[in-house]
Simulated scan of single mutants.
Amino acid sequence: MKRKAMYRLMATRREMLYVHDVFDHAMMLVETEGEPIEYQVGVAGEFVSRRSVTFHDRIRGTGKVSGYTITNFREGAICSSFEGHRDGTTKLTTGTWKIYKGMGKLATITGSGTFTVKQGEKEREYIMDIDGDYEL
C-alpha cells in the first residue's frame, strides 16, 4: 500500500559540539516532536504523537543525518530508522526510512520509503514530506 504524509516537526532539544578538525565541523543530537499536516487514517486509528531523535554530522551545514522515530496511533505504533543528507546551500534534508518494529494493530507492518525535510516558517520548525510503501 502506498502512503504519503506531511508532518510539522518542532525541535524540542538540541545539543551541539564542535569537532575542531576543520572550520565549522559540528555534531548535533536533536529531538523533535511532530504533528500531521496531511495524512490518511489507517488501521491503527487516529494519530497520537511522533517523536524522533536525530544525529547530525555537518561541515558548514552540510552532512549526514541518521536517527530513529516512533509514531504512535490510537491502536498501534511504528518504530522507524532513517538516514540521509542535509545540503547546507538549499537547507534541504533528503533520505530514506525503514520500519524496524510495529506494535499493536501494526505488529506485522513492514515498509520503507523516502523523506524530504525543509525549514518551516517559525524558529525550530521543520516540514517533512514522506512517501513510502507499507505492508501489513
Rank of each mutant, 00 (worst) to 15 (best):
2 K>Y: 12
4 K>S: 07
4 K>F: 14
5 A>N: 07
5 A>V: 02
5 A>E: 00
6 M>G: 02
12 T>I: 12
12 T>F: 09
16 M>S: 15
17 L>T: 12
17 L>H: 12
17 L>Y: 10
18 Y>A: 05
18 Y>I: 01
19 V>K: 15
20 H>S: 14
20 H>Q: 13
20 H>V: 14
20 H>C: 15
20 H>P: 09
21 D>M: 13
21 D>Y: 06
22 V>H: 07
29 L>R: 11
31 E>I: 02
32 T>A: 13
36 P>D: 00
37 I>K: 03
37 I>L: 08
38 E>P: 00
39 Y>Q: 02
39 Y>D: 00
41 V>N: 10
42 G>R: 08
44 A>S: 13
48 V>M: 06
50 R>A: 05
51 R>A: 05
53 V>S: 07
53 V>K: 08
55 F>D: 11
57 D>C: 10
57 D>F: 00
58 R>M: 15
59 I>N: 12
61 G>T: 03
62 T>H: 10
63 G>M: 07
64 K>C: 08
64 K>D: 15
65 V>N: 12
67 G>V: 04
67 G>H: 09
70 I>S: 11
71 T>F: 01
73 F>A: 00
73 F>G: 00
74 R>C: 01
75 E>A: 08
75 E>D: 11
77 A>M: 03
77 A>W: 11
77 A>K: 15
79 C>D: 15
79 C>Q: 14
82 F>C: 09
82 F>V: 05
82 F>M: 13
83 E>S: 14
84 G>K: 01
85 H>Y: 15
86 R>V: 15
87 D>P: 03
87 D>M: 01
89 T>P: 01
91 K>N: 15
93 T>P: 06
99 I>G: 00
100 Y>G: 14
104 G>I: 04
105 K>A: 06
105 K>M: 09
105 K>V: 01
106 L>P: 04
107 A>S: 11
108 T>C: 04
109 I>P: 00
112 S>L: 03
114 T>C: 08
115 F>G: 06
115 F>Y: 14
115 F>R: 04
116 T>Q: 10
116 T>R: 13
120 G>P: 09
122 K>T: 14
124 R>Q: 04
124 R>A: 12
127 I>R: 00
129 D>H: 12
129 D>I: 09
129 D>N: 11
130 I>V: 15
135 E>K: 11
136 L>S: 08
